[in-house]
């Protein structure tokens, strides 16, 4: 059903670096859970509309006016690395 390569691919999409000892366990767990989920195959939903939200939500608009907010200094002070008012991260472009 789900191979070790699948798991490594999902981990990569999830941006999680798996340690070797985690791979087998996660493969088995995901396989068990996906197996359990197959019970939904018993249901014919071809004519059923999906429900992504239980309430009839509409987009919420507000006037485009400036209102007080956190402010830059307050917003970034909890970052691990700040430089010149910006978040500093490792190189993005090779």
């Amino acid at each position: 059903m789900i191979s070790k390569e699948d798991v490594l691919n999902i981990a990569s999409l999830s941006r999680i670096h798996l340690k070797d000892n985690e791979i087998d366990q996660l493969t088995k767990n995901l396989e068990d859970i996906l197996e359990y989920i197959t019970k939904l195959e018993n249901l014919d939903v071809s004519n059923v509309e999906p429900t992504s939200h239980v309430l009839a939500l509409e987009n919420v608009y507000r006037e485009d006016t400036v209102i007080p907010s956190l402010g830059q200094a307050n917003a970034i002070k909890i970052s691990a690395d700040i430089q010149n008012g910006s978040f500093k991260v490792p190189k993005v472009i090779e």
């Binding site: 798991v7 999902i10 981990a11 990569s12 999409l13 999830s14 941006r15 999680i16 670096h17 798996l18 340690k19 985690e22 366990q25 996660l26 767990n29 995901l30 859970i33 996906l34 991260v89 490792p90 190189k91 993005v92 090779e94």
Partner: peptide
């Protein structure tokens, strides 16, 4: 250590087993 390596290492270290399991199941 590119930025992606930072993401992957941060999340590998910071999340526990159940969090990894659920994030991966959802991603799948």
């Amino acid at each position: 250590s590119s930025i992606v390596d930072m993401y992957e290492e941060t999340r590998a270290t910071g999340f526990g087993t159940e969090a990894k399991r659920r994030i991966m199941l959802g991603t799948y």
